[in-house]
């Protein structure tokens, strides 16, 4: 899979309180959450982000709370992928589980640059420069590609129900 998009550039240690401030944690709705994404640190983000935009960040993106609301707010904003030098682990899990693609890679890009990500080849192109990344482990690729953990759980439950039925 390949995607092309416009860059929003962020620095290191972008915490979940910056992505979605705690006072908006009274809904799980992605679109609703998206209205307040990065509100305290980049108030223009919510109004200007377009479907298919890509976040490029430094290290430890998504550190802090376990709030899945952060990943959901980005999905609701239409963000197609986050490429960061590294991710905080709960944010990483949440994103994969709800099918928001992540790429762990140090990328040199600025706001507004056009970026292309080739997930299969593990390469990123921006401003004529190439950056390589290690694709996710198979299990996670499958999880991401097949509708995330919701689908996965449903399939397992289906199998479980089936197993029970065949035992009966």
């Amino acid at each position: 899979m390949k995607i092309k998009g416009r860059v929003w550039r962020f620095g290191d240690n972008i915490d979940t309180d910056q992505i979605i401030p705690a006072e908006y944690l009274v809904t799980g709705d992605s679109e609703e959450l998206a209205k307040h994404a990065f509100e305290k640190v980049r108030p223009e983000f919510a109004g200007k982000v377009r479907k298919g935009d890509i976040i490029v960040a430094g290290k430890n993106f998504g550190c802090g709370s376990s709030r899945e609301h952060a990943a959901r707010a980005l999905v609701g904003s239409g963000v197609a992928c986050v490429a960061a030098a590294s991710f905080a682990r709960i944010f990483f899990r949440n994103s994969i589980n709800i099918s928001l693609p992540l790429v762990e890679c140090v990328v040199d890009a600025e706001d507004g640059d056009e970026i292309e990500i080739d997930f299969g080849r593990g390469s990123i192109e921006v401003n004529g420069r190439h950056f390589a990344f290690k694709p996710l482990p198979k299990f996670l690729q499958n999880l991401l590609g097949s509708g995330g953990l919701i689908e996965y759980t449903q399939r397992k439950l289906g199998r479980k129900a089936h197993e029970l039925a065949s035992q009966a």
Binding site: G28, S66, E68, I90, R93, N94, L149, I150, Y152
Partner: peptide
């Protein structure tokens, strides 16, 4: 995220997201 507090008693305890909490409730 601060579920890791329980490690003080020798448990492997870690923070997760809502979707995976739901999945674990079922599976």
């Amino acid at each position: 995220s601060h579920t890791c507090s329980h490690g003080a008693l020798g448990a492997f305890s870690t923070g997760v997201g809502s979707t995976e909490a739901a999945s674990a409730m079922a599976l």
